[in-house]
Each structure stands twice: as C-alpha cells, then as structure tokens.
Design a protein around this nucleic acid. Structure first.
Length: 364
DNA sequence: TCTGGGGTCCTTATCCTC
DNA sequence: TCTGGAGGATAAGGACCC
C-alpha cells in the first residue's frame, strides 16, 4: 500500500487530502517519536519514515501531525487481505500494508490479474496500492518499489539481470545502511551489478558465511523462499521510551511492571508461554544493552515475568540516565492441554507447595 | 541535537557434556 | 587422569525489516 497510514487518515478525513500529513508517535511533534508514514505531500518537504518527529516539524511546521491509530489501519488491512484471498489462499501478510501472493496456480496473465487487484483495492477502500510481479518473492518485492504510487510493475526471469544491474545494492533485502557502506568501502560495490562481480568467497569473508552466500544468490535474482501463509511468533515484547531520561530505580521498576503485564496479556491472548525473559535498557547516549535469563520452566504469568525482569535490572549499571526500557519473552511454546497459561489470581493458587519450597512469594 | 516499537536472524563468546 | 574436539544451550550484541 502507498503511504498506508497517512493514506488511511486522508481517506477517512477528506479535509486532509492534498495536504502534508505525518503519522507517528503520539501525534505531538514536540515530543519523542519518529515518523511512521508521511503522505506524498509531506515527502516533498524531505520528510520520511523513521525521521524524528521534531526534525519533521522543522522541515514542515504546517504539516498535520497525527498519532498512530493501529486499530483503524488494521481494519483497512483486513479488508484488503480479504480481497487478496479471493484470488488465492496463498497469501503471506508481511505487515499491515504489504503481502505476497503466490498466483502461480492461476491461469490469467499476471499483469492483468495485478491490474484487477489494484483496481478493486482502490474501488473498495479508496486507497492506492503498488503491485510488483516476479518469478519469486525477491523480484516481486523489488518490482513493487520501482514505480510508486498506484502502479503495476513486472520483472521477468529473463529481464531481471538487466533490471537489477544499475540499482543501488541497498534495494536488496538484507542490505541496510551498514552493509551497503561495508560493501562500498571494502569491495567498491555500489550497484547490484557490482555485487554480482564479487566472488562468493570474498562476500563470505567480509560478511560471514550465511550472509555472504545469501547476497551472492539474491544479487542474481535467485530466491526460492515459499509464500508462508501462517507462522508462529518466536518472541513477544513491549518497550517504551521516556519523554525525559530517568535514573530513578522506582520509575524503571514501575515501567517494568506495566510492560511485564502487557507482555503477559499478549502471551495469554496469543496462547503462548515462554521460557526466556530479556530486559533491554537504552541509556541517554543511545547505547543499548540487554540482560536475559532462561527459567527452568515456561511461564506466562505477570508476576513471574516481573520478578525475573527486576532481578535482571539489578545486573545493569545504573550510573547513567535511561531513555528506554523493554521486556521480552522468547522461547515460546503452546502450553500443554489443560494447564493454565498463567497463574490464577492471588488466593487461588493451585501450586502453592512449589511456591513455598522455592521461598518465592509471587502470589501477591 | 536527534534517533519508536515490534519483530527476525546471525555472529560470537562461553559453558557444559559427551 | 589429562587433553582435545564436537556440539548443544545460553547470553549478548548487532543488522535488518516494516
């Protein structure tokens, strides 16, 4: 979808159409937060995703700044996914605004099919989409970004080498700013064509065996990854950035309490328990550290997660102001049939003996 | 001076067991 | 008893994606 969050806001509030709209944070450009999505009108001022809201405000003070309304965007997303599933059940949602479709089982001409899907999304939601067609996910994804907005673009197997050759290496999945810089500095690689000229061994020496081999394949347009219609999460987490850095332990413990509760609620809702608890601390200078502990058994219980998180907090040096605190639970599994995913509320413990033996009182 | 939040995967180091 | 791997689990950090 093109500028999805901003486009939804402009769709449901017609007075915003044609104006620079910036969606991000809590909608206050004087507080901490970054741009999630900028409308095309806002992009004309140099505003883009991941830019600090304060910076965006300096570039265009008259832009309309709005908070992120995930619920509203999720509704549009579901409507779009429903349309897509009419064409194939092999739909892999990548995020709220992006999905892969495997239409190799359909007989239509792919561009005609894509054009029909693009038109139906527009008719039924008022939003524009850009669709890429390719012999694999990698090339379809690149194609979708070549012409935006509201376009259908195809990369064929035969034409892929020529199409890719002069594109900057950073358009490839898995090459970000750091890797692009390393490739340029060490190997004078700037385009995908440059990358194709580098030996497998050189790439692996620079970037490691896995990443090197991966880049060697994708710069040639090779990708055999399947369209995955559903997958299991590996971790669930919550984190928050303070509006002002803090060094008060009570404040941080309070934050850990609410974050742990939110993670526990997510675990319960999604039907998982997890074994490893990780606490993340970002200091005022943006240095970010984690401390993790793997428990003897999985849990989804708020108090157990919180107790572990507080113990982990004590392993950080609290000599600098903190700007972000996070809690993550990983090593997720489905709890065994018939067992509660979380401890029952205080006074209803079914497992009091173990609590007493361990000397742990986390029933309150 | 500024730099969100929710994820995944990889690399490296360390410890432990066989 | 000592030594050296192999290999799994855990922990920490980093790059990347949307």
């Amino acid at each position: 979808m093109d500028a999805f969050f901003a486009a939804v806001e402009q769709q449901r509030r017609p007075e915003l159409r044609g104006k620079p709209v910036v969606v991000g944070g809590d909608g206050n450009p004087h507080r901490r937060g970054v741009v999630s999505t900028a409308s095309y009108e806002a992009r004309a001022y140099g505003i883009h995703s991941a830019m600090p809201l304060r910076t965006a405000y300096k570039k265009c003070p008259k832009a309309i700044f709005l908070p992120v309304d995930f619920r509203a965007y999720g509704e549009f997303s579901r409507r779009i996914i429903t349309i897509l599933r009419e064409y194939t059940l092999l739909v892999e949602p990548m995020s709220m605004d992006e999905a892969f479709l495997d239409v190799s089982g359909r007989s239509e001409d792919p561009p005609a099919l894509a054009e029909e899907i693009r038109r139906r999304i527009n008719d039924e939601t008022g939003l524009t989409a850009s669709i890429g067609i390719g012999p694999n996910k990698l090339l379809a994804k690149i194609a979708s970004g070549l012409r935006k907005p509201d376009a259908v673009t195809e990369i064929t197997a035969d034409g892929s080498a020529e199409t890719l050759r002069d594109l900057p290496s950073i358009v490839l999945w898995g090459i970000g700013p750091k890797t692009a810089a390393r490739l340029e500095e060490s190997l004078r690689v700037r385009t995908i064509g440059d990358l194709c000229a580098i030996s497998l061994e050189s790439l692996q020496e620079l970037l490691g065996p896995r990443h090197g081999e991966y880049l060697y394949r994708i710069c040639r347009g090779r990708d055999d990854s399947p369209v995955i219609t559903e997958w299991e999460p590996k971790s669930l987490s919550r984190e928050t950035t303070y509006q002002q850095d803090t060094r008060r332990r009570e404040t941080i413990v309070g934050t850990l309490t609410s974050l742990s509760g939110e993670v526990a609620a997510d675990l319960r809702q999604e039907g998982y328990v997890g074994r490893t608890v990780t606490v993340k601390i970002r200091y005022h200078n943006f240095k970010t550290h984690t401390r993790a502990l793997t428990l003897p058994e999985s849990t989804g219980d708020h108090q157990r997660i919180l107790q572990t998180a507080v113990a982990l907090l004590d392993r950080f040096t609290m000599d600098r102001p903190v700007r972000l605190v996070g809690v993550r639970v990983s090593g997720l599994t489905r709890p065994p049939e018939g067992e509660p995913q979380t401890a029952p509320p205080a006074g209803e413990s079914v497992d009091g003996r173990r609590d007493a033996k361990d000397g742990e009182s986390w029933s309150d």
